[in-house]
Design a protein around this nucleic acid. Structure first.
Lengths: 144, 144
DNA sequence: TTGCGTGCAAAGGTTTTGCATGGCA
DNA sequence: TGCCATGCAAAACCTTTGCACGCAA
């Protein structure tokens, strides 16, 4: 049916976990540990292979975050739904913010028209600090 | 003299290579191979350690590019010179474009004021396709 | 001479590959 | 039954650490 892809318990479990954590990124290790805890063993090889496939389909996004040595993945919903806006990732709490804002699309057009560069919305992420974490930082006297 | 840091042949060689490739990113392996070819052996441990130090000083930027599993580094000039503009990285040729443009800083202020998110210019990179590569793609009938 | 720098070897992680077995359709 | 999927073990990488020796200041 689906390009000759089969439905399996393992894929379902991985996808469920990704969907339940759509507001935060997870590592292969996170997925593996969670499934193990829930008596639902899935080999890490399978996790890597399935994530690769989801990546190809655009169903997950892949990041590299500074303090983590392994790759981070995050559910991106049905493909195409995130092509039209940018993403802000808070480097402190890891939260991903979907920025639907006309200013951004305008900037994109400007960069394309006046600088000849076509930004890829799926790949580009603004890294920074969200308001919640900025407030925390304040209360801490600037320390982390 | 410099915070008790010594000047050595190895550091000089690495820095020279980075400076000569300031318009492209390089991996630890690139550096090692180049120096080897030039009969100027430097252990990779040294390369890692020196890059770490440069990173702390803000003299290089560190990336992860999709198709490469290892980290990419790029000379960033004397510290602070790149904090005030964004960077566009072409995913096809790897070229880094420094985008000094008032529209971008305006967008940044807008995101901060109206969305409560403070983007970090040093960390944020726009991924996409540059005009040169877009033209190549055209001539190829859309194939890569 | 002092103490940072270097480089080898080894360790520690993450990700990929080979291959036999399992399971969906 | 025909394929794709899975999982173990091993391999392949990338990066870091420990330690003895080298070298700038």
């Amino acid at each position: 049916m689906n390009n000759g892809e089969y439905k399996t318990r393992q894929k379902q479990a991985i996808l469920d976990f990704l969907k339940n954590n759509r507001d935060n990124h997870v590592t292969v290790n996170d997925i593996s540990e969670y499934l193990e805890k829930n008596n639902c063993h899935v080999g890490i090889t399978t996790i890597y292979r399935y994530l690769d496939k989801l990546l190809e389909h655009g169903a997950v996004r892949k990041y590299t975050v500074d303090n983590s040595t392994s790759a981070c993945f995050q559910y991106a919903g049905p493909s195409d739904s995130c092509r039209e806006h940018f993403h802000l990732k808070c480097e402190m709490c890891g939260r991903l913010i979907h920025l639907d804002c006309s200013h951004v699309s305008e900037l994109c057009n400007h960069i394309f028209k006046d600088h000849g560069f076509k930004p890829d919305m799926m790949r580009t992420v603004f890294y920074g600090i969200c308001s919640v974490c900025a407030a925390k930082q304040q209360n801490n006297g600037g320390n982390i």
